[in-house]
Simulated scan of single mutants.
Amino acid sequence: MFKRVLGAALILGLATPAAAATCGKRGDMVTSLEKKYLEQLQVGGLQEVEGDKSVVELWTSEETGTFTILMTRSNGISCVLAVGTDVFFAKPEPAAGRGTPS
């Protein structure tokens, strides 16, 4: 499931390039997501491209319905890849015993 959520998050990030202009120190970005948007970290993953490592995270708020896809580079700078308002929802888990796990 993590792969599906992160894959969808990355696709959404590529679809909204205007959000990519928002970057800052990771601590400042996280504080803003938690306090201003009431978002909490849901999933994340480490990626490596040509030796440069970064962490991609999905932050969401059940209260506000917002979500943010955040990428943090190894230098500690985080950038917003995508945002959404009043549209975040979690996919329900499939019933046990159905299908093959990925």
Rank of each mutant, 00 (worst) to 15 (best):
D28I: 12
D28F: 13
M29L: 12
V30N: 04
V30Y: 00
V30W: 00
V30S: 03
V30L: 07
V30E: 08
S32V: 07
S32Y: 05
E34S: 11
K36L: 12
Y37H: 14
Y37T: 08
Y37S: 14
Y37R: 13
Y37C: 06
L38D: 13
E39D: 07
E39K: 03
Q40M: 12
Q40R: 09
L41S: 06
L41P: 00
V43W: 02
V43Y: 10
V43E: 09
L46Q: 13
Q47W: 02
Q47F: 08
Q47N: 04
E48Q: 14
E48V: 15
E48Y: 04
V49L: 13
E50D: 12
E50Q: 09
D52C: 01
K53G: 09
S54H: 08
V55K: 04
V56D: 12
E57Q: 14
L58E: 02
L58P: 02
W59M: 03
W59Y: 15
W59S: 01
W59E: 01
W59R: 04
T60R: 09
T60F: 04
S61N: 08
E62H: 06
E63D: 14
E63Q: 15
E63I: 10
E63G: 10
T64P: 06
T64H: 06
G65W: 02
G65I: 06
G65E: 06
G65D: 04
T66D: 10
T66I: 03
T66R: 13
T66A: 08
T66G: 10
F67P: 01
F67A: 04
